[in-house]
Nucleic acid binder design. Structure first.
Lengths: 247, 247
DNA sequence: GCCGATTTGTCCGTATGTATC
DNA sequence: CGATACATACGGACAAATCGG
């Protein structure tokens, strides 16, 4: 629940853009105008606009203004840049998402697990396999490894719902950042079984591996998210940075 | 060539972190200390640190400090969040990248192209197929559509080198942002031919479609980048944002 | 548990530089 | 050239979180 001023302005502008209060390709009111309408300082406006740039909603152009480049886009996709749980994503996209825990066990990391996850051998972990359904179809198979010492009392019942909700609202853990890697991998028999795929059709799927850190700086989660390719779609807005390299 | 103060501080801190001048998991000098060492204002320090957060190099923790979470990671991957050309990427990762233009033609967009690229039917375009090699292996097949009116005088020779270099340094175009979508698609005969793939092995590849905009707000490029899955790897650092949604 | 010192987060006002028109 | 707009930088004030005594 962000109650900061710049965030309120950011949300208000964002909503106005989505509602097409500003025509596509037109310039937003200038910073000085926005200062008056929101009764705040220039820095605060600039910060709100900066977030909109990051979202790919606007471009700022020195000497000209801030141009609206938002197009009402297919919202069925995952968005890079933020961390959100499956429940949050399905709620945002207005889809009926459910989760089934197909495996729940405790284990101790060995050399092989250390290599894959980054948890050092000997660490006690929860290992889960969870199947995510959207509109009744199984689309994502998750392999979760949670650091047991950081997440006491995890149960299958919690895992059926939102683990992130449990972490943030019950354990009061602060999730800070997540390093992710996206690759394409061959499907396994497990994928085939749970995602109901046929090797004669697609024989690969999209895999997102992530290491997630809390505010203590400890990695408490390693997750491998295996997505059915025919429903996988990842979105991103990139900003050209003042070229570091002179190539 | 960014000559701004905050950017110089950003680069200096970044270099120090990469050189492991600050131990992993330790706190960086406080903002007040950095103000003295760099002889600047607090805002300037905060901005530099903010960039490092976005890069996934550090975490900021209110009341505590700024923690170094940088791990010297495999640099073989593409990085999300920035726009860089193939030449820039291969130079950054110290690999020998070459480009071969396998198709260069001019065409006019029809309904089908409009649907795929977003260029409205009737628009004059350059259409290119370019094959990118890394260390001699063909890894990426690019389908480029460039808006002819925005890029006069494009030639195969320029396309063999860096088109972005031509755009920025010859045409003085300013590239601003790029909307990208990542998917997994079945391989086509063209992919098979140029990327030397075998359908019995992987039958899919990673596809990154991007629409790129310049400072005039016009989309001047649509590109479909088809990557061999066994060499594809996309990296990302995500920051948990103050939860918008109360789920 | 409280208090004070430290540290980051938010916000304000102002001045100057630079690009656009 | 002047007016307007965004970009950078400075300095100050208060809030919120952390930590140690």
């Amino acid at each position: 629940m962000p109650k900061s001023k710049y965030h309120a302005i950011y949300r208000d502008l964002k909503q106005k853009i989505e509602a097409e209060d500003f025509p596509y390709q037109s310039l937003l009111p200038s910073e000085n105008t926005l200062i008056l309408t929101y009764n705040c300082s220039r820095n605060t406006i600039r910060r709100a606009v900066g977030e909109l740039v990051r979202d790919g909603y606007v471009q700022t152009l020195q000497g000209k203004g801030v141009r609206n480049i938002f197009r009402p886009v297919e919202q069925t996709s995952y968005t890079i840049g933020g961390i959100e749980s499956f429940r949050e994503a399905s709620s945002r996209t207005h889809r009926r998402g459910t989760t089934k825990v197909v495996c729940f066990m405790e284990l101790t990391a060995d050399a092989k697990i250390e290599k894959r996850t980054g948890f050092s051998a000997g660490t006690d972990l929860y290992y889960l396999q969870r199947l995510h359904y959207i509109d009744g179809k199984p689309l994502i198979l998750n392999h979760n490894y949670f650091l047991k010492s950081a997440i006491p009392g995890l149960t299958p019942a919690i895992a059926e719902n939102s683990i992130y909700d449990y972490l943030e609202n019950v354990l009061h853990m602060t999730i800070v950042n997540s390093k992710r890697v996206m690759t394409v991998e061959k499907i396994t028999q497990i994928d085939e079984k749970y995602l109901k795929m046929n090797v004669d059709d697609y024989n690969c799927l999209a895999v997102i591996s992530s290491q997630t850190f809390n505010s203590d700086g400890v990695m408490f989660e390693y997750t491998e998210s295996r997505h059915r390719p025919d429903y996988f779609r990842f979105q991103d807005n990139a900003v050209r940075r003042p070229s570091e390299n002179t190539i």
